[in-house]
Design a binder for these strands. Structure first.
Length: 258
DNA sequence: TTCCAGGTCGTTT
DNA sequence: AAACGACATGGA
């Protein structure tokens, strides 16, 4: 099955560091999310997908009205526009909250390569096997499935291991971005930055603006602001509910230019 | 060997 | 309220 998506880049979206559960094979992406494996491939403006229906894929990829609104708005920003030209078509994926939280728990003092390995090790040790065509993988386990300390040790999470032992169950119940932020930060190891990641990448709060070291460097360079609190305020004021999209472009820009 | 990496948290100024 | 330093691994 397939559908048309203008001004969207599958590659830039999947490889922007918001998601870690895919493999790429000859231009074709194999994704594991929402309990299954499915494939995605982009040819010009056409998105070809298998083992998942179009409604699901559009929702997962975040190709919707809000995406195009954000694109239009952010392109009017004189500083962001050239950045967006370099790395075009980045959307915000709709991930599963716990998996997103877990991935970013692993992200502390780490890097994308290692985060990916940690997450895949957790899935392999505790998750259910899924197969699609000649590819196999493992669904990311719920916290209550991560129940064997010896196996957890083999995942080499370092000091982040304790977070996975302490979170026995994960659910999120909130009516607003602010409520979600407060709720999420009750979990061990989840601070403001990771809470923002979950709000943005899983809960659909596109006003979230996760501030990490890369964003700090880039925001200093592009806008002359360096304190995390001030950066968040600035982003909220300048981009409002599109701040999260801006964050992805700024992050990607930082990674390739600083 | 030494330093630093998509942070968080308790402790100390 | 702001500024440390510890926390485990792994790569440069």
């Amino acid at each position: 099955m397939q559908f048309t998506a203008n001004s969207f880049s599958l590659k830039n979206t999947l490889e922007s560091g918001q998601f870690f559960r895919y493999t790429e094979d000859n231009g074709r992406y194999y994704i594991i999310s929402h309990g299954k494996m499915f494939s995605l491939e982009q040819k010009n403006n056409t998105l070809i997908h298998e083992n998942a229906d179009t409604i699901f894929v559009k929702r997962f990829l975040g190709v919707n009205r809000k995406y195009y609104e954000a694109l239009t708005k952010l392109q009017q920003d004189s500083i962001l526009a050239p950045v967006m030209k370099e790395i075009a078509g980045i959307s915000i994926l709709k991930q599963e909250p716990w998996e997103c939280a877990a991935a970013f728990l692993c992200s502390q003092c780490s890097n994308i390569k290692r985060i990916t390995k940690n997450v895949n090790d957790l899935a392999k040790n505790f998750g259910k096997k899924v197969v699609f065509e000649d590819h196999e993988g493992f669904v990311f386990p719920k916290p209550e499935e991560i129940d064997n300390d010896a196996k957890l040790k083999t995942c080499k999470l370092g000091y982040r291991e304790q977070y996975f032992q302490r979170i026995k169950h994960f659910s999120i119940n909130a009516e607003s971005y602010e409520e979600a932020m407060n709720f999420l930060q009750q979990y061990a190891g989840v601070g403001e930055k990771i809470a923002d990641c979950v709000c943005l990448f899983a809960l659909g709060y596109t006003q979230a603006f996760p501030v990490d070291v890369w964003i700090r460097r880039a925001m200093k360079h592009l806008f002359g602001i360096e304190k995390p609190k001030e950066i968040k305020q600035f982003a909220r004021k300048r981009w409002n509910t599109h701040a999260g999209y801006a964050q992805q472009y700024v992050y990607h820009w930082a990674r390739s230019n600083l």
